[in-house]
Design a protein around this nucleic acid. Structure first.
Lengths: 140, 140
DNA sequence: CTACGATCTAGAGTAAGGTCTAGATCAAGT
DNA sequence: ACTTGATCTAGACCTTACTCTAGATCGTAG
């Protein structure tokens, strides 16, 4: 083992960055913004040590962000969790509302996709031997 | 008819804003940024008059933007169209690359959705009579 | 002990995509 | 003519979400 025993239990900011895909800058930023459930532990020297619970929470954050949840909502969610049991209903509402937004977004993207596909088809057809003059015309 | 005959053929910026969902500010901004295929016509008094082709193009812009195409790409696309026939292959590549990005985005969102759904399920179950103490635990 | 890379803090800077303001002008109803 | 609302330009400003910098410190390999 090249690392200390503690390393088996906790990770440095760089290791967490690797595992979550967030930059070390982003990790510090998230912490400042109050997006973490509890304060990250520190070594005697002041370096952050993340537990695997911290990492799990961050991985959820990543998914929520990736699906478009604003940092403000994520912060709200973190606050609810930080307050402990008793507000599960509100957490549920928050997540469920977000899920609905994700659904709507997927639907919208699928509509866009079909418009784009149609447009792609127009050009493909043209290139496959078409002749239509007014191709610049957005409707063609 | 309360409007002049010309109104049947062209629209004011406000009318275009209504039809496209873009703000009048955004319409002027898009024009400045070179996102339109050709310069918008003006009345003798300097007001913009949009043709239905302008509107059609804007509606496509809206779909491309809505699906996440950056303004820079949209500008590139507008330039290709502005140059006229002869570059259809490049237009096709641009659109098709974008479509692939949209597909990837939809996939990613669907993955996020399932993570969120699982998390929602955890809370719903808990509220429906659960007891698990460590609910704050991100994995629970 | 010395290097050297990783981390630390505070705070400035960046990129994208608009949004808003001020002050002037236009156009239409009365 | 007068009022009112829409539009005009140029340019400043805004929000979100980071990203980067400077200058200091930590910690580990040699």
């Amino acid at each position: 083992m090249t690392t200390t025993e503690a390393a088996a239990q906790s990770l440095s900011i760089g290791e967490v960055a690797e595992r979550t895909g967030l930059s070390v800058h982003a990790l510090r930023f998230y912490e400042r913004e109050g997006l973490l459930v509890d304060p990250v532990q520190r070594t005697s020297g002041g370096r952050r040590r993340y537990t695997s619970l911290d990492v799990d929470w961050l991985l959820i954050c990543v998914k929520l962000r990736e699906s478009g949840m604003p940092l403000a909502d994520l912060k709200h969610f973190a606050e609810l969790v930080r307050r402990g049991p008793g507000n599960e209903e509100e957490r549920l509402r928050l997540l469920d509302a977000h899920r609905q937004r994700v659904d709507a977004r997927i639907q919208a993207l699928e509509e866009c996709r079909s418009v784009i596909t149609w447009k792609v088809g127009v050009y493909a057809e043209h290139l496959a031997g078409g002749e239509a003059g007014g191709l610049w015309d957005p409707t063609a």
